[in-house]
Design a protein around this nucleic acid. Structure first.
Length: 1223
RNA sequence: GGGUGUGUAGAUCAGCUGGUUAGAUCGCAGCUCUGAUAAAGCUGAGGUCGGAGGUUCGAGUCCUCCCACACCCA
């Protein structure tokens, strides 16, 4: 009934399996099978739907699929919901590039609605793409139809009515945006999208709860800002926009108060920030020079090392690190500070002091006359800083250190004293607020000075005229020391090309002072892998994190539901759309029917109940980690906005498992989920325990995918491997095994992409030479993948091929009863119709017993989310199956046909059962290969696509519809497993002995004797003496009580037991005990105690105190391990030599047959020539044997050697052999 | 600067509460076996266990200090 098996052809095989699953709707059948059963709840961490998948995404997705498949095969109902992360800056950035929008105003011009629709469109497009890639991985999820996603994307922004059929089968007709906002809802099924209204609205619910507990507040942050772009920048964008430019930089002196004619010397490249100076920072460990200028006898302080420091010396010579960043023409070499003072009339050094001594010195600022400098509490006024203003705060502070431990203030480019403007710089702001500096924020949205800046008001910060004005005023007041043209790399807006400034912006925060509640929840969760101690990492982050900034001045994202009274600053948070509708006094009609995004939501206004004023929604959008953090609630119908028939939240919360790549997520997704869950489950009465608040029970983290050298893969240099490149070159089963077998705590060295070697990939949709995004596909090599195939998949396939080849040749077909028994189905576990296991030979029972052990391991390790543990055991089993069971039993399969040969039938039935069960066990890991094997083994088809005809018994249609094997403890025979292990150990020792003594295995030896002090082991080996005889080619295997006559013994002290008893004597024991000898210590081997005198000390020894090993004796070689001793006779009688020669002869003839491409059944005639009479003598004795083994009809001696035939060794003798095929 | 972790063969990693000659896999060299196998088996080369002290009869393992790297934090 079996179809013949070709080579493994992994990749095309996977394509045909995908086709098979589609045709047979296998996944739907699996879900139906488990519907209503006990639940297992997996919660997917959303993948960013902004780009196609790379191989790094596939690791986590393999875990997700494998565990879901395991729990499906063990009969669990599941949700199978994938998630897409949809909102946030990363999408905006790509869309801006795509549309060529340079500035914020360009977005306004384009229309926020159009822009937001474009963002949605991009997300849908890549969601469709990632869906298709995931399906190729074999990832079974409740996927949306990718074509429908694309159709919706296309019609966004129009009122065209379109019709979709959701994965649940529900059909819906509406405008695209109205369908899109409902994607993933419990009644439709399909992936969740974080841009859905449900997701956004549930975040509103969360924020409302925060608001009610008084945790929402408005604060400030200093952000890189583009004046013309009118928007803030992320670090990611800054990295893209760095450019070489020149600035007028300036040396300025700040007069010290209480120190007449003494000055701090500072330097800056951003003169406009001097208006907002508040402090000056030094490095407390640095030496500062006290220098008197001859010009006006003024005394200056600055870092001693800077006096003669050649600023930008290497840049002047070599440029700034990129070819296009050469030293600008027309810009002179920079002067040293010493030069500057020399030019101004010379100077005199008065001494040196430590920075620490300067801390606290008060000074006079350069623009203290500006209203902003004099405003109480800074500008804008901060109520926490009342009582101080810029002008009265100026003093020297300790610059401190950054997160890497290096000082913020160093000698070098500047003066070692840094002017601090906490309203104009990121680091200034951080340091400033930590020491209580008032903040002066000069710039408005458009990058110009605010009202309180006198003559600067309305001037653009980055305009060169502004710098000139600053210099002029400094000069007038005697602050200016020198100016210069200074080239440096400076962040620019990648959209407009303008220089960025740092600007204080209003942001919204969640006060995280309830962190202890979150920590308690964190401690309820199991964090895997153990070795990285995720729980502590998370708790530590929670202990140290600051308040959570949740706002961003952008367009695409969660509309923060905060409404502000512009007059009083009062604000309120709306907890749902229903609440908003009730409170809305304006703009609801314009909003209704749209998604709660900008711009549609922006027009809705409510009234401040206290003042009666209209309140406006703040324009900010939310932090995207809110989107991902709310999913334990939003995706599971927490607020019951959908029918609880479709999905009942309490049934699925908390999730049993979440899994994600962990670096970074401790403060992103894990953090947001824990925080949101803790707040969502908060109750005033404290009735809910931390246990009940946890959003998931177990978290499984894994590290990163790297290239084969262990370096990160980058898109930019072409080393990042696209998913399809790996899938179609390495095969996804191979990839999955690599991911699953990998220790999740360490990086996976996946493989290497060779961008210079293009390749055409054969995908299920046909050949491609570039990805859908137009990237040429390149060759991927991978040592680990090769190893996986060589050691796991190919041996597995060959075991299967071996079985099928011989079964076809022999006409073996499993009985219906056997098929049912192993595949499962309606009447599984039937008895009869095959040879009872108890009646099969020991080696059959052994492999079946081992199989039961593997089944138990599988259940244990999968339930413990330890895929590597299972993979290791499975690999060992495959190895045992291939290199012990099959190799040992080959003769049982190929001997001639005989219907009454029950031993042969037992072999087939055993191997059949093992292979099918192994498929089922491995199906969650390598779903494709196992499906192919299963289809042939159980359903008698290969290639698929064809319905099986004549199918008379009911067996599961797919390996994935089988129940996961349950261990049959009746077959599990621990004692047998141990016995075989003992025999394998003897064989191993025997091979080692033969190797060490150059006794080749084809040379038969007379005898092997073995002994073990453990009677069970000894009898175990005795029972398997035949196996040992055959494997080692030894005539006689005998058990002995001991090997005393053949071997010597050596004795060593067991330090572990003797150490505590004899302490210092141990050194002596180590040298002396081996000298005591067998005569005294022999009784130990019989389990008796012995007392010895060593250097006058009486030592009592029990058998446990001494380690005994064996040593060689004449004519025998011996070895021991694990309490087993063996000895092999090395005496070669003439009989044995001739017998060995006959085996050599056979082997050589077989090789000749193979070389001549003869068929297994071809008959031959043999002629040979040798100068040595011994060969003829051997043939006379063993000719029949040789002929029988080689299917020869005759074996003739030729008195003349053959020309053109290479002499081969038979024993120690050279022989030429010729083989003639008989017709 | 503080915290956490890591440092063992050419590479990747094991090494439990201190115990004898420090292991595995891959790679390399040689040999063996092979009528499914791109396999498998065996042997070998390759290690001052990051360094220095200390505790102990005994330290890769425990303690102290130092060095390097990684991650986290302000």
């Amino acid at each position: 009934m079996f179809q013949s098996v070709s080579d493994s052809n992994f990749v095309p095989g996977e394509h045909s399996v995908l086709h098979f699953w589609n045709q047979h709707d296998t996944f739907r059948k699996l879900r139906e099978k488990n519907r209503g059963q006990k639940r297992w709840s997996f919660l997917d961490g959303p993948i960013t739907a902004n780009n196609p998948m790379g191989v790094h995404h596939a690791w986590g997705r393999t875990y997700k699929d494998t565990y879901q498949r395991f729990f499906a095969m063990t009969g669990h109902d599941q949700r199978y919901q994938n998630g897409f992360d949809c909102q946030g800056l990363w999408v905006e950035v790509e869309v801006e590039k795509q549309l060529g929008l340079g500035t914020k105003s360009a977005v306004y011009e384009y229309g926020i609605d159009n822009f937001v629709n474009e963002c949605k469109r991009r997300v849908l497009k890549f969601a469709a793409r990632q869906t298709e890639q995931s399906q190729r991985l074999g990832y079974w999820m409740d996927w949306d139809n990718p074509d429908q996603l694309r159709e919706m994307a296309e019609h966004l922004g129009t009122d065209t009515q379109i019709t979709i059929t959701a994965p649940s089968g529900k059909t819906e007709t509406a405008a695209a945006h109205q369908l899109v906002e409902k994607l993933g809802n419990p009644e439709w099924g399909g992936s969740y999208f974080t841009f859905s209204t449900e997701n956004n609205e549930t975040i509103w619910d969360f924020l409302k709860k925060c608001f009610e507990r008084g945790k929402i507040y408005q604060g400030h942050d200093v952000m890189p800002w583009s004046g013309r772009g009118g928007s803030a920048y992320s670090q990611m964008e800054i990295a893209e926009g760095r450019k070489l430019t020149t600035h007028k930089s300036v040396f300025v002196r700040f007069p010290l108060k209480d120190r007449e004619n003494e000055f701090l010397l500072i330097w800056t490249t951003t003169p406009w920030t001097l208006t907002s100076n508040v402090g000056a920072a030094v490095n407390v460990d640095l030496d500062y020079v006290k220098l008197k200028s001859n010009k006006d006898d003024a005394v200056y302080y600055f870092a001693r090392d800077n006096l003669n420091f050649q600023r930008l010396a290497s840049e002047f010579k070599d440029g700034f690190g990129r070819p296009e960043w050469k030293w600008p023409e027309g810009v002179g070499k920079l002067k040293t500070i010493a030069q500057i003072f020399k030019e101004q009339g010379g100077f005199e050094e008065l001494g040196t002091i430590k920075g620490a001594e300067m801390v606290g010195w008060a000074y006079e600022g350069p623009f203290d006359n500006l209203p902003a400098q004099q405003m109480d509490g800074g500008y804008p006024v901060d109520e926490n800083n009342l009582g101080v203003c810029g002008a009265n705060w100026h003093k020297v502070i300790d610059g401190g250190r950054d997160s890497r431990g290096s000082a913020h203030v160093v000698a070098g480019e500047g003066t070692g004293i840094v002017h601090m403007a906490p309203g104009c710089g990121d680091i200034d702001h951080k340091i400033g607020t930590s020491v209580g500096m008032p903040v002066i924020a000069p710039l408005k949205d458009d990058g110009t000075y605010g009202e309180a800046f006198g003559e600067f008001a309305g001037k653009e910060a980055i305009a060169p005229e502004t710098a000139e004005l600053v210099f002029e005023r400094l000069k007038e007041k005697g602050f200016l020391v020198a100016t210069e043209t200074y080239p440096h790399i400076y962040p620019h807006c990648w959209r407009t090309g303008d220089e960025l400034v740092f600007r204080l912006v209003d942001e919204w925060f969640i006060n995280m002072d309830w962190r202890d509640e979150i920590k308690d929840v964190t401690r309820q969760i199991r964090w895997l892998p153990d070795s990285i101690d995720g729980q502590n990492r998370e708790v530590e982050w929670l202990s140290n994190m600051g308040d959570w900034m949740i706002s961003k001045k952008r367009f695409w994202g969660l509309a923060l539901p905060i409404w502000v009274d512009p007059e009083t600053g009062d604000f309120e948070v709306m907890g749902s759309l229903a609440e908003l509708k009730e409170r809305a006094v304006e703009g609801w009609d314009g909003f209704e029917g749209n998604t709660p995004h900008r711009p549609w939501i922006d027009g809705v206004k409510i009234r401040n109940p206290k003042t009666g004023n209209l309140m406006n929604r703040i324009e900010d959008v939310g932090n995207p980690w809110l989107d991902a953090g709310i999913v334990p609630f939003s995706t599971m119908n927490f607020n019951e906005r959908y029918s609880t028939e479709a999905l009942n939240w309490a049934d699925w919360y908390p999730a049993d498992l979440v899994t994600e790549c962990f670096p970074g997520q401790f403060r992103n997704w894990f953090y947001s989920m824990l925080s949101l869950s803790t707040m969502m489950m908060f109750d005033k009465d404290g009735q809910r325990t931390a246990e009940q608040k946890k959003p998931f029970r177990t978290l499984l983290g894994h590290r990163l995918v790297q290239n084969e050298e262990g370096k990160p893969m980058h898109k930019s240099d072409g080393t990042a491997i696209w998913f399809e490149e790996a899938a179609e070159q390495l095969g996804v089963d191979t990839m999955r095994w690599m991911y699953l077998a990998q220790n999740p705590a360490t990086d996976l060295r996946f493989g290497t992409r060779h961008p210079d070697k293009p390749v055409t990939l054969n995908t299920p949709e046909g050949p491609i030479s570039e990805t859908k995004e137009g990237v040429p596909t390149a060759t991927v090599t991978s040592g680990p993948a090769d190893e996986t195939r060589r050691q796991i998949l190919i041996p597995l396939w060959n075991c299967y091929k071996f079985f099928v080849d011989y079964a076809i040749a022999d006409g073996f077909s499993p009985s219906d009863a056997l098929r049912k028994r192993v595949a499962g189905g309606p009447e599984a576990n039937v008895e009869g119709g095959f040879i009872p296991v108890a009646d099969r030979p020991e080696i059959d029972r052994w492999v079946l017993s081992n199989l039961q052990t593997l089944i138990e391991t599988a259940h244990r390790e999968f339930a413990d989310f330890n895929a590597p543990g299972f993979c290791e055991a499975a690999a060992e089993f495959i190895d045992d199956l291939s290199n012990w069971y099959i190799r040992r039993n080959r003769r049982r399969f190929w001997r001639s046909k005989d219907a009454s040969d029950t031993d042969k039938t037992a072999a087939y039935e055993t191997l059949y059962e093992v292979l099918v069960k192994l498929c089922q066990l491995l199906a969650p890991c390598i779903p494709f290969l196992t499906e192919r094997m299963y289809q042939n083994l159980v359903r008698g088809v290969t290639g698929f696509g064809v319905e099986v005809s004549g199918e008379t018994i009911e067996v599961p249609e797919s390996v994935h519809l089988c129940d996961y094997p349950a261990a049959n403890t009746g077959i599990l025979d621990e004692a047998l497993n141990k016995r075989m292990a003992a025999a394998q150990l003897v064989v191993k020792l025997g091979h080692k002995l033969r190797e060490e003594n150059t006794l080749r295995v084809r040379q038969p030896l007379a005898e092997l004797q073995f002994a073990s002090s453990d009677p069970e082991t000894a009898s175990a080996i005795a029972q398997l003496a035949d196996v040992i005889r055959e494997e080692l080619n030894i005539e006689l295997v005998t058990q002995q009580a001991n090997l005393d006559d053949l071997v010597g013994y050596s004795y060593k002290p067991n330090l572990k037991t003797l150490g505590p008893k004899y302490g210092k004597l141990l050194g002596l024991l180590r040298t002396k005990l081996p000298e005591v000898g067998d005569a005294v210590l022999g009784p130990l081997r019989r389990g008796e105690n012995v007392s010895v005198e060593i250097n006058g000390n009486s030592i009592d020894l029990t058998p446990d105190d001494v380690l005994i090993s064996t040593e060689q004796a004449d004519e025998w070689v011996c070895s021991d391990e694990g309490g087993i001793q063996i000895a092999i006779s090395t005496v070669l009688t003439d009989d044995l030599v001739r017998k060995g020669m006959s085996r050599d002869f056979v082997r050589q003839v077989q090789q000749l047959r193979k070389d001549a491409n003869l068929h297994i059944q071809d008959r031959i005639g043999i002629e040979y020539h040798s100068e040595d009479n011994l060969v003829q003598a051997m043939v006379a004795e063993w000719g029949d044997y040789i002929c029988g083994e080689t299917l020869a009809n005759s074996i003739e001696f030729s008195s003349t050697p053959f020309s053109d035939v290479k002499s081969v060794n038979v024993g120690d003798t050279g022989v030429t052999i010729q083989v003639v095929k008989l017709v």
